[in-house]
Amino acid sequence: MIKVGIVGGTGYTGVELMRLLARHGAAQLSAITSRKEAGMAVADLFPSLRGHVDLQFRDPADAGLDRCDVVFFATPNGIAMQEAESLLAAGVKVIDLAADFRLEEVAEWEKWYGMSHASPRLVAEAVYGLPEVNRERIRNARLIANPGCYPTAVQLGLLPLLEAGVVDPTSLIADCKSGVSGAGRKAEVHTLFPEAADNFKAYGVPGHRHLPEIRQGLGRVAGRPVGLTFVPHLTPLIRGIHATLYARLERDIDLQELFERRYASEHFVDVLPAGSHPETRAVRGANVCRIAVHRPQGGDTVVVLSVIDNLVKGAAGQAVQNMNLLFGLPETQGLDGVPLLP
């Protein structure tokens, strides 16, 4: 059994990790940390885990994380970079669900995240954990930078077009909507029910932290810097991301066949039949990205619709997918649940 530790087990990604790992079959939850809730039973804070997770939250200092095989950081930005080096030295694999190791350029990271990087040496070693692109590198990694939720939906939607070189990479548009859980479990006015319900708004238009991550990933595939306009929106949903992506077609091609061929062997990317419109509820609770590609009126604009559950394929599920790759397990292990409806 793989001994698993989770640092920061009281947030939405932490509890989602516990939900997935509790039924994984090859993973044993050994330590769940929280300084604030140390000593409290996990099931007392999260009753949904009663009968599935029989552990107490522990202070990170005495949780025995160095005795784990893998440690997930479900923490705010800036935490994993302070603790990853000592765990790696102890032979522990690390999967960071925050952004500490996602950007290749340390100066760029410090600009967007507003703090000095505590472990710049590890940035070059970290492997970006998008399995549909980096599967073989992930298998041999010690440190995984789990992608962000918006970057996952956007990159999976645009990758086939850029890999095939059939669109203008300088004029991409990502118009994205997210459920409120994407903001985390912390108390903030804009995520209170009276603020978020019956409301719809854009945010981060001048620049969102996920923008450089998306540009980095797409640029690597395109072989050149990309021009991307990324506009996120907050919707009155609990879970889900819907990315509507626009690109200018530069040569005629069967788009449906292109996407089906690219993702034919990818268990967690589902290319829907031509003319489809994927919905966020069709991926709720599941580690899958559903995609539909359109060419309105047969013109030169490609519209890609990409939907994921931001807490699963956009966070905890993708992290477990990466763990499976790290330990030579079937990639689907613990992740074959059917989406929830309604």
Rank of each mutant, 00 (worst) to 15 (best):
A243Q: 02
C289N: 12
R239P: 02
E266H: 12
G8L: 02
V304P: 00
G5Q: 06
R19Y: 03
E266Y: 11
Q318S: 13
P151G: 05
G25H: 10
G285L: 10
A292C: 09
G275A: 14
L158H: 02
A264C: 08
P151Q: 07
I6L: 07
P278I: 08
F46W: 14
L156N: 05
H277F: 15
H277G: 04
L272R: 13
R209Q: 11
F72M: 02
K201G: 12
G337Y: 04
E331G: 10
F73Y: 03
I241Q: 02
N324K: 04
R262D: 03
G5L: 05
R239I: 05
S306R: 01
D44H: 10
V283I: 09
V127P: 02
A315Q: 00
D309M: 15
T280V: 15
E213K: 03
A145V: 11
E83W: 09
M115F: 07
P232C: 12
P278S: 05
N140M: 09
L87E: 10
L162V: 10
G11D: 08
V231Q: 06
P169H: 04
A243W: 04
S119D: 14
D44Q: 13
G157W: 07
A124H: 09
L249T: 07
T332P: 00
L326G: 00
L49M: 10
E104L: 14
K36S: 15
R295N: 10
G298A: 07
Q318I: 10
S181D: 11
F259E: 02
P160F: 06
T10Q: 04
G129F: 00
H210C: 11
E125I: 04
A286V: 08
Q297F: 11
I79T: 12
S265P: 02
F72R: 00
Q256S: 09
C289K: 01
D59L: 05
L340V: 15
Q256K: 06
E266P: 02
A41I: 06
N199Y: 12
Q318P: 00
G25E: 07
H117V: 06
P60R: 05
V271A: 04
T75K: 08
L159G: 02
V166R: 06
R67H: 14
L17W: 05
Y12F: 15
A124G: 15
C68A: 11
A222Y: 11
G114Y: 00
V231C: 04
T152C: 03
F230R: 00
F73Q: 00
Y203W: 12
P151F: 05
V92R: 07
R224G: 01
A63K: 07
F72L: 03
E260D: 11
R290Y: 03
A274E: 14
A316M: 06
H242F: 15
G91C: 10
R262P: 02
A197P: 01
Q155A: 13
D254E: 13
N310I: 15
S265G: 08
G148S: 04
P60V: 10
V133A: 14
L228R: 02
L326K: 01
L258F: 05
Y150R: 01
R121W: 07
D100Y: 07
D59C: 06
P236G: 07
L228E: 01
C149P: 02
N77M: 05
V189C: 03
R135H: 12
